[in-house]
Each structure stands twice: as C-alpha cells, then as structure tokens.
Design a binder for these strands. Structure first.
Length: 276
DNA sequence: ACGAGCGCCTGTCGGC
DNA sequence: TGCCGACAGGCGCTCG
C-alpha cells in the first residue's frame, strides 16, 4: 500500500490543494455514494449515508497509514491498503471502474475513494481512537527517542523486519521503506530484535526518519499501475532491485522472503551475524 | 508470544 | 500468441 510518505503526500494535497484542485478544508458533504459495500468498515451503509450528509471537513491529517478527516461531529478515517487512492473530480464525471465510495460536495466536486483490489477500508466514527488506539508511535514523534525504541525492541523477540512492519510497534512503515531503512542501517532483515544494541538502534531510528523524509520530499513512490505523481521509486537503493548492484559495494541485491514478504537486501553490507 | 499459512481482490509481468 | 503462475506499497484471522 501506500506507506507513510504516500499517505502524508495525499493528506497534504487534499489539505493544501494544488494542481488545479482546491483545498477540501471547509467543503460540505452533500451526499455519499457507496459502490462496493465492503469498503465500509463501520457504520452500516444506511447509517453512514445518513450521518455523513451535511458534515463539513474541518481538518485533514494522518496517523500511521490512516487518513483522518475531521468532520463536524464525526471523524472519517480511510485506509488505502494496497491499491487505494483518493481523487478529486467533478461530481458529474463518469464513474470509473474502481470507484468504491464517492462523497459529493455542495460545490460540484466530489472526493472519490478508488481501489482496484478492494482491500481499503473506511470508518465513520465519533471517536477515531476506536480505530487507531492500537497503533504504535509515530516515527517523527519527538518523544520517540532511540532509548525508548531500544526498550521496545528488547521487550520483543521477533525478526527485525516483521517487527518494523507491525503497526502496533511503529506506525507508518511498509515493505519499501523498511527495506530501505534496514539497508542504510546495515542491518539484516532477519536480525532478532532483542539483539540490537543502543548504538544500532540510534542508527536505525535516524535512517527510518531519513528514508521517510526522502519519500515525502519526493511526494512518495509511484509503482505498479497506481500512479500518484511521486518519483521516489527512482531513488530506491535495494527495494525492487534484485540482481542489480548494491549502491555501496556493487554486490547484486538479493530478494528473499521474510515473514511472507518479499525482502530486498545486500548480503555483503547487511550481515546476519552482528559483531557485538 | 511468535511465525506460518491463508483469505481478501484485481491487475501486470515474465517464462514457457 | 496465449496461458499460467508469481507477485504486488496491507492486514486480520486461525493455528501450532
């Protein structure tokens, strides 16, 4: 799915406007059209339609990979999962094949949740904490120090990569940015989490933040057939580069499975056995 | 408390 | 060319 940088890019775009599209802040939702029922996590379709009509978008934010739309009494949460995207278009435009939910505004525009694979989900709730309560810390939270991250790493006995992908451990990382952060940190994805030293954790946290910031600066990555305008895919160091030379040592990048996920790394730079 | 396996879905790509 | 499996930015579930 879109990971933190892609979700942040979308949130900023909708909040600030640009490229001919106005900011959605202040827009009033007139009515909703649900084209794929399972897109709606909660409440039931009839109640959703009734409750969202007339609500105004007051703020647009992000928590982990969730988009948050602060409405009048309620909050709308959207998770794009693998193939979801948000589009602003004229409310009169033809309905495209993968449109799943459309929110018509009272100004002739609509916000569309488009999602080819139908994995994405939408929640409308008075209390967004009901949805986001289990999420781990935000990577850019200033209160997340290397010491605190190190403590959290030591309380678990898991492979490093699956742990970093666990949204209850840290919110926002996905497959791309995890591989990139581990590469920069010279850490093997199979490293047991409780073997990380504090110095290693400092390096890891700094690199997680760096790759996420790079992603945001490039407006995210555009891969597969879902194009969102970003170009961070041109700056991947290892992700999706199986067989291509490691940018540091030239050794061909390997692809293995870790926790059922395709994982890209340099076997020379990222040794499984760390020196203590 | 872990990881494996699978389900949810559609689309693309590479190999034969 | 055409078919077919592998694979895809995610996550929740069950099962050992």
């Amino acid at each position: 799915m879109p990971e933190l940088p892609e979700v942040e890019t979308i949130a900023q775009g909708l909040r600030l406007g640009g490229q001919g599209i106005p900011s959605l802040v202040g827009m009033k939702i007139e009515r909703a059209h649900l084209l794929w029922e399972r897109t709606l996590a909660t409440p039931a379709p009839a109640e959703f339609m009734k409750r969202i009509a007339g609500q105004v978008i007051h703020a647009i934010g992000r928590r982990g990979k969730f988009l948050l739309f602060q409405l009048s009494p309620d909050t709308l949460l959207i998770h794009l999962r693998m193939s979801g995207d948000l589009i602003v278009e004229p409310a009169a435009a033809a309905v495209q094949p993968h449109h799943r939910l459309m929110l018509d505004f009272d100004n002739g525009l609509r916000l569309v949740f488009n999602d080819a694979r139908k994995f994405g989900r939408v929640w409308l709730t008075a209390d967004p904490q009901e949805v986001t309560a289990k999420l781990g810390p935000e990577p850019f939270d200033l209160e997340l120090t290397a010491e605190k991250l190190h403590e959290r790493l030591l309380t678990r006995r898991r492979l490093l990569k699956p742990l970093l992908l666990d949204q209850t451990f840290l919110a926002g990382l996905g497959n791309i940015y995890t591989d990139e952060a581990l590469f920069l940190s010279r850490l093997h994805p199979n490293t047991p989490s409780d073997r990380l030293t504090l110095p290693h954790t400092e390096i890891l946290l700094a690199n997680i933040r760096q790759v996420l910031l790079e992603g945001i600066r490039h407006h995210g990555a555009s891969i597969d057939w879902v194009y969102r305008g970003g170009d961070f895919q041109n700056y991947f160091r290892v992700y999706g580069r199986k067989g291509l030379p490691c940018p540091v040592c030239g050794t061909p990048v390997e692809r293995i499975l870790v926790g059922q996920r395709g994982t890209h790394f340099c076997a020379h730079c990222q040794k499984e056995e760390m020196e203590k």
